[in-house]
Computed example of a mutant assay.
Amino acid sequence: MEKNNDISRRDFLKGSAMFSGSLLLSGLFPAGASEVISKTAEMNDADDLLKGVCDIHLHAEPDSRARSVNEWQFSYDAQRSGYRSVMFKSNDFSCHDRAYLIRQGLSDMEVFGSICMNRVHGERVNAFAAEKAVATSGGLCRCIWMPTLDASYHYRCEGRKEQGIPVLDDAGRVLPEVIRVMEICADANIIFATGHCSPEESIVLTRKAQEVGVKRVVITHANSHFWTMTPDQIRLCIDLGAYIEYCYLPCLWGEGTKMAQYKRQSIEEFIAFVRISPERSFISTDLGQAVMPHPVEGMRDCIIKLLRSGIPQREIDLLIRKNPAFLIGLN
Results as ranks from 00 to 15, higher is better:
residue 4 N to K: 11
residue 6 D to R: 07
residue 9 R to H: 11
residue 17 A to L: 05
residue 21 G to K: 05
residue 28 L to Q: 14
residue 29 F to Q: 05
residue 34 S to C: 02
residue 41 A to Y: 12
residue 47 D to Y: 00
residue 49 L to N: 03
residue 50 L to G: 08
residue 57 H to G: 00
residue 59 H to I: 10
residue 64 S to D: 13
residue 69 V to H: 11
residue 77 D to K: 11
residue 81 S to V: 07
residue 100 Y to W: 15
residue 102 I to G: 09
residue 103 R to A: 08
residue 109 M to D: 04
residue 112 F to G: 05
residue 113 G to E: 08
residue 120 V to K: 15
residue 120 V to W: 14
residue 122 G to E: 06
residue 124 R to I: 07
residue 125 V to D: 06
residue 127 A to R: 10
residue 128 F to C: 07
residue 147 P to W: 03
residue 153 Y to G: 03
residue 154 H to A: 13
residue 165 I to K: 10
residue 166 P to L: 05
residue 169 D to V: 09
residue 175 L to S: 03
residue 179 I to V: 15
residue 184 I to F: 05
residue 191 I to C: 15
residue 194 T to M: 03
residue 211 E to F: 03
residue 213 G to Q: 10
residue 220 T to K: 06
residue 237 C to K: 05
residue 241 G to V: 01
residue 246 Y to S: 08
residue 253 W to L: 13
residue 257 T to A: 11
residue 257 T to V: 05
residue 262 Y to Q: 09
residue 267 I to R: 09
residue 268 E to Y: 04
residue 270 F to N: 06
residue 279 E to F: 02
residue 286 D to H: 01
residue 287 L to Q: 03
residue 296 V to S: 07
residue 299 M to H: 03
residue 303 I to R: 01
residue 307 L to P: 01
residue 308 R to F: 07
residue 308 R to L: 14
residue 311 I to H: 04
residue 315 E to G: 04
residue 316 I to R: 01
residue 322 K to I: 14
